[in-house]
Every structure is written in C-alpha cells, then in structure tokens.
Design a protein around this nucleic acid. Sequence first.
DNA 1: GCCGTTTTCGGCCCGACTGTTTTCAGTCG
Length: 588
Amino acid sequence: MESVLYREVFETDVRNKEVAKLLGDIADLLEIKGESAFRVGAYREAARRIEGLSFDVETLSAQGRLQEIQGVGESLAARIDEYLKVGRVQYLEDLKAAIPAGLVELLQVPGLGPKKVKLVYEKLGVMGIDDLEKAAHEHRLQALPGMGEKSEDKLIRELERWRNRSRRLLLGDALPRAEAVAEMLQGCPAARQVEPSGSIRRRQETIGDIDILASSDSPEELMACFNTLPIVKEVIAHGPTKSSVLSVDDLQIDLRVVKPVSFGSALQYFTGSKNHNVKLRELAQKRGLKINEYGIFEGETGRRIGGNTEEEIYNALGLACMPPELREDRGEIEAATADRLPDLIEMGDIEGDLHVHTDWSDGHNTLEEVARAAMAKGYSYLAICDHSKSLGVAHGLSIERVREQRQDIDELNERLHPFRILAGIEMDIRADGTLDYDDEVLKEFDIVSASIHFAMGQPVDKITQRVIAAMRNPYVDVFNHPTGRIIGRRYPYEIDLEAVFAVAAETHTALEINAAPDRLDLNDISVRRAKELGVMIAINTDAHAIPQLEFMRYGVATARRGWIEKPDVLNALPLPELLARLKRSRSK
DNA sequence: GCCGTTTTCGGCCCGACTGTTTTCAGTCG
C-alpha cells in the first residue's frame, strides 16, 4: 500500500478507499484469527461506511471528527488517524506477522469461511491456495472434523472454478442477461412473477452473480424448469426453494422461489442491500416486529401483517417504499423516517442526449441517422459533440470541418423541426489547460463540452487546475467523464473532485454522468456529493453508434443511486429552458 | 469494536442449504 508520505494530496474517493481497504484487511485477519464475529463485523461496517462517504476521511481526521462516522468509535478512529499520519498501522502489521498472507486469499474461495481456513492452517499447515489444493488431492482434508469426502470433492471443484474465475460483470452486461433469464423463466408453466433482484435491481455498477426471484404455486416444478434451461451448464446447489446454477458463459445465477403471497417481502429481502436489510430489521425489532422473506410479523403473536408487496413491508414500519437504487444504507432509511426521500430522476424525464458522436469524427452513423434514432426514442433534442482537432486518433475536427458540419446540422434542423440538433463539440482540454479552439470559434457552437483524453498522468494539482481553467471558459457548458476511469481497466486520473465541484457550481458548468457501462463517470457517490454542492448534472451516453443510445438507462440508474432529482439534470430540461441555462445565454 | 426511547454493559438480522452430523456447525446472501 502506498504511503501518505509519497503523495500529498489525494482524490477523496481514492483516499477513502485506501482507509476502507485497511480496515477490511484487518477484518480478514481478525476473522482467521478467530476473533469475535462482532469485532470483525465492526471493522467491516466501518470500512463500508468510509467507502460510501461522500467527503474526505482525511479532512475529518484532521478536524478530529472521525467518530462522527457511523460505526467508527474511539479505537477505530485511532487506527485511521495512525494510518493517515504514519502511512501504516502497527496493529495490522502485527496481525500480518502472525498470520500467513495466503490465508486471506483462501477466504475468497466459495465454501471456505474463517473457521475452515483456521482449521486447515492449524491442523495441516495449509498456508495458501496451492497448499490447500495439494492437501485436497492427497485426501488429507477428509480426516478433519466436520469435513468428509464430499466436502473435499466440492472444494476441489470450487478451487478450480476460483482459479478461472471471471471478474465482476459490468451492469451493462449483467442486466440484459438477467432480463433474458427472467424472460425464459417466465416461459415455465409454473412461473407466476419473475424479477431480477439483488445488486442488479439496485443497479450497482458491477455485479458478482445474477439473482432472480420468482413466485410459484408449485416451486419445485419451477425449480426443475430452471435447472434444465438451455443456458444452464451446471447445477451447483438446489433445494426446494433455492437453486444456484452456472450458465454456459460461466455466470452464477441464483434462483429463489416463494409462494405468490410472499413475493413482496421476498423481493424486498433479496433486493438488499444486506446492510439496508439489517438496518430495516433492527428498526422492525425495536417496534416489536419481525421481517423475513415471507412477510412482516408481530413479534409476540407471530401474526402476519403484510408482505404481499414491498410497500406493505415499508409501510408497516411507517416508511414510504423506496426505489431499489437507494437501498444501500446511505441514509435512505433515515430520510424515509423523516419523510424526505428524494423524488428520483426517471428515464421518462430525459429530454435529450448531450454527448453523441457521428461519422464526422469516430462515430459509426451519419448525422441524420443519429438524429432520427434520437427522435425515435422520443427525445426533443440531441447535441452532436464530435471530437475537436487534438484528438487525431478520433479524426478530431478542424475549424473548417466544424463549420461544414454546422451547415449540415442547420439544414437538417429545418427538415426535422421541431426536433432540434444542437451543434456541439467535445473539446479537448490540452495538457497546459488551454482549449483546442479559441473563444471566437467556441461561441459559434450551441453547446460546448470539455474532456480530458491525454496527459492523464499529470499530478493532482496540475490536472485539477487544467480542468478548472476549462470550466472558467465562458463557453464551456459541460465537463465530460470527470475522472476518466474505465471500470476494471483504467483508474481515475488523480483529480481533486471537491475543488472541481466547487468551481462547477460557481461557473454553472454541468458535470457529466457518462452512461457508458464501462465508465459510469461520475459514479454514484461522487454525483451525490456534486449535488450537495449545487452542481448541475448532464446524463449522456457518449454514443458512437446508434445502439449505444440505449446506455442512457445506466446513466439514469447511476444518477438515481446518487439521489439525483429531475431539477438537478440539465438534459431533463425542455429545449427552451436548456438553451437559457447554457452559459452563452446567461452572459447576455 | 460499536452503541444507547433496552444507555456504560450486554446485546449485535434471519433463514436456506450442505455435509456432517443424530441435533448441528459452517457458510452464504
């Protein structure tokens, strides 16, 4: 882990993630050591809280306010302070010295928990994956208490799977697959309601496995139908109400079946998140109620008081039912208690897409094709933002080409009226903070958005100042994909988002949620912070081909996870209001 | 290790499935 001594300023997100990882590492080791599950849980809970924080843990530490974070008490605050000051925590170093590093990895193998890891370590001297595999093949595991031949065989299979495990799926890959499986299930005669649940329903940006909930009057029949779907390669586990299979493309799909009367409570339960549900159950407990996947019950009498729908569960606790995207235990239960849940942006609120490419630069379709596709989606406007000249690899437009494209746009607008194509540009912010065209050219556009595509390795101060300079330009309306991350492939560049948000709010520059499934940039946590600071959001697909206009749903999902409401979104404005909002109009 | 309309100690969500057990522990979500 990189030490604080080497870098002076960090982007909030990265810094918080470091601290979260630190606490998570401690939790793993404590778990193997056999510490109280509650102590372990406390570290995990704090780690999760800090990762979900929308402000900088380092600032809190400096102000001595760490204990204001839920789940952080005296001793955790001390550990965090120590890490931020010294760059390491002695407590963790001691744990590491006592416990082989390979054991932590073992925890990730499905079916292996802390107890078994401890067992194989102490009895067989297993220090890591390789040791364990060897012990299993030599049938040395069978002799251990609580282990047998079947456990050993299962473990061998799991180890093999784990070695070839695929990374987490992007929401954009997982959601369509889940919807396809749900549709197939709906074709089983025994199926009643079918709904993807779990992290997919919450629209998390990446997904581990696909969870589907169904209701049926004869669950076993539906289960049998599921297990024999053509996409099923292997049945991992199955009982009368729950089944896990491996699909032909190596995804784990879990199906849970309940009676129709319990569908609502089961859907609530299997949508999670885990922490949201824990909180909800605690709340129920305090009110003498009990929630499980079959309904909500009076604690004393056991009488069932609801559960046919999700609303019944929440309402029984005096809460309004809340959208799945909010259910992360990031304050939504408190908000519901105070009757202050946000009224989240919806797909139907989107009036247009403000970042789309055509074959004038690196897009695949013509101006007219893209415009007609946007019209078919029910949009009332579309901003064409092809690349500016710096981006040679993407056929960035020279000033002459920009003016030619403008003529085409004007002609097309006459034909497509009242639909409106906005002449825009995706303007590269050059390494020195200057822009590709000067203001005399910029003012010819209807809308200008700015992006960073190179010199991403600059130090945090430089890159932040570069972006701030662009946002201060009187014609730059939007800053695109603000962190530059590509999920699973490229880390965000180091940028001080707090500073960017402040200037964005001050200069009325909107920040993008780039809806491409491998970007989702800004992410949910950052976008929520941006909103808190009064920043306007634009949700754009950055489509380079017509089918990619469909990415809008992932951008809207991310916005919803960030508590964004319709008035926060630039492209939820009708055309006249949108035009009035842009800087060129403001300055008049 | 945290926390408090059950408050400074004694709790901390709940059920399904598996494999080992003959009543349950471990793991998972």
